[in-house]
Amino acid sequence: MKPEVHVALKHPGINLGSSDRKTDVAAESPVFGFWVFLMSDAVIFALLFAVYGVMMHAVAGGPTPHDLFEIKSSFLETLILLTSSFTFGMASLTMKYSADNRRRLLGWFALTLILGVVFLAFELHDFSSMAAKGGVPQRSGFLSAFFALVSTHGLHVASGSIWLVVMMVQVVVFGVDPVVKTRIMRLGLFWHFLDIIWVGIFSVVYLQGLI
């Protein structure tokens, strides 16, 4: 009888590799499936970007991007989200190399969660100061497209934050077992993906609008 050989195909995203070979193999198809979801999500965002590109100049006599956008607050949001991507990376590495150190894992998660919530607070502040200047979604094609795109991203960050809370609870209740590990891996992909979308938003929406 031949010995069973697991050829561990590497999936995109962090691979557990030799630190936990069994979970690494088991994670393969859930992670690939999650990539299929992320890519269809990417198509949604791409089309919202396309709509924004078409509607950008359709201000209908209302406020323009110059009147509404603040470079300082979009820069801060960029820094916050980028840092949260890094702290999630550190959480992934903690999970991979010292899974028994729950406190450190929860610490990185908490930091990521705080950054996510602060990002959302800044975004809501932006929206309300835009509304105060007459920049509401129903004002023009530009504003409808803007709110459709940016708040879809904001909703993703909000659901990511809820997911983070759920994973923190699972780490406490179940420990860092194989199932929890593959869930954390997928949440990681989701979180890094949201940061990538944000790169598109600050380049295409905020910086282009302010030029």
């Binding site: 890519m39 198509v43 990376g89």
Partner: peptide, 20 residues
């Protein structure tokens, strides 16, 4: 962050990414 590269073992996923 997402660890995508052009190594051979990741070809399937790269296909997915390129198709998307």
């Amino acid at each position: 962050f997402l660890h995508i590269n052009f190594s051979k073992s990741k070809r399937d996923d790269l296909d997915l990414l390129l198709f998307s």
